[in-house]
Every structure is written in C-alpha cells, then in structure tokens.
Design a protein around this nucleic acid. Structure first.
Lengths: 113, 113
DNA sequence: TAAACAAATCATAATATGATGATATGTTAA
DNA sequence: TTAACATATCATCATATTATGATTTGTTTA
C-alpha cells in the first residue's frame, strides 16, 4: 500500500490534528463530551481565562471541530461531529496501551531537567 | 456523561495528538503506512532534509508513534501500532466530510492576506 | 584501520504559538 | 436608553517549535 498526499493535503491534515494538540483546546473538547456548554460554563469547567477560552474556541470553530449557536445572550458550543469524540477515544486507547511511550516523551510541556 | 481529566492527563493526551499535528511528522507517518522504511528512504519519500527528518523521527519515537530497529547500517522505522493508522484514517474521514471547516481554517500555515 | 555511507546530535536563528489585559461588540431586561 | 452581563477581538510579550548547517557517532566493507 502506498499513499501519496500532496503538500497541501498534508498541511490540511496536520491542521486538523493540531486542533487536538494543545492542552487547553483538548480540555475544551473533553468538557463538551457531555453536551453543549456556554462559554461561561466552559470557562468555569476548564479554569481558563475568558479571553483565552474565546481564542481557543475560535480556533476550534474555524477548524470545524466545534459548532457554535447563539441562544439569547449565551453562545452554546458543542462538538461538531461524533467523530471528534471518536478521535478522542482512539487517543485514549492508544495512550492506555503500555507500549505507547508518550509518558516518557519530554518534548512538550515537560521539565527537561 | 461527564469526563474529568486532571491537568497532567490533558497534557499527556495533547502530546499524543501533537505528534500528528505537524506537516512533516504527518508526512513521515503517511510514508510508513506502506510498511517499514529506512531513514534514507523516508528522506527521499518526504523530501525533507536528513537532519530535519531525524529530528522529527526522534519526536515520533519518543512519543511512541513509531518504532525503530537497527539492521546493519540502516535503521528501519515503522508505525508502532495499528491504531496510529486508525487515527490517520479517522482524520481522513473527518476531513472528507464537507461539514468540517478545516479547509477554511487559516490559523496555521496559511497566508492570511 | 581507513573509507564510505547511514543516522543522530548540537547550536543557532527564524518563526509560530499561546496567554494576558484592555477594550469592543452584542444581548437582554429594567 | 442605560445597566449588566456574555462573548469576541486586539496588541503585545513571552515562550515553544521548527529548520538549517556543521559535526559527531555508528556500521560495514575493503
């Protein structure tokens, strides 16, 4: 099997995964697994600042991972597709496997010394 | 459904996805879908420099997404787990859905103006 | 052991990303 | 229309990430 994807295609795909690749965005996605939440609810669920939450929500929204719907003075956010949850679950599965070395990876967010 | 994950757990999970979140690393992973390759083969398959390839391979290796095996003067790299390919496939599925807005996302690797 | 090739590492510079505080916009209800 | 609250945006700074060229380490074969 040989799969060839052009440069543009790879960038597109990496953008999708990068949506999941930040702790704060991932916190937001996890918080939405239970159903739609307002921004204020996401703020209190994640402990992030309002501004930071809004910035990351924009990223997630632009990348199509979450959907926003205004209701009165609230904006409800939700996962845009079941497969977003599926991807999270598959990540869980990979991580829970002892063979996966992510625990030892010190490349990101880890004190190197 | 309510899922609570501590800060450490979220960082761990985001590290996993960040492995997929770079165009060059993703190119490497795609090149390995067809089976194990040596570093030199990956270099020519992806067009990346040897040094850059090696750097990203280290990242992927430390995060447990690929496995390395020395054979003579070559080091063969391969996907460490079928679920790595599954994750790529799930990403494909999400992307192929018109509802997904990744195409419009200009946050990364896109000329804004 | 020396040459030739494969792969990894290192220091550095350029760039991308993320967090913050201040501010602006939008919505409801008094 | 004003006050109060919800959300988004902006400019800026600190930091993380990436790519590069030079160098080093490791392996095989002559």
């Amino acid at each position: 099997m040989q799969i060839v994807i052009n440069v543009e295609g790879v960038q597109l795909r990496s953008k999708l995964f990068r949506g999941f690749g930040d702790p704060n965005r991932l916190s937001i996605l996890y918080s939405l697994l239970g159903g739609p939440l307002t921004v204020t609810e996401i703020v209190s669920a994640t402990g992030m600042s309002q501004s930071n939450t809004s910035n990351h929500l924009r990223c997630l929204r632009e990348c199509g991972l979450v959907a926003a719907e205004q209701q009165g003075k609230y904006v409800y956010y939700s996962l845009s597709d079941d497969r977003v949850g599926d991807l999270l679950a598959l990540g869980e599965s990979l991580l829970s496997d002892a063979a996966c070395g992510v625990y030892q990876c010190t490349r990101y967010y880890a004190s190197e010394e």
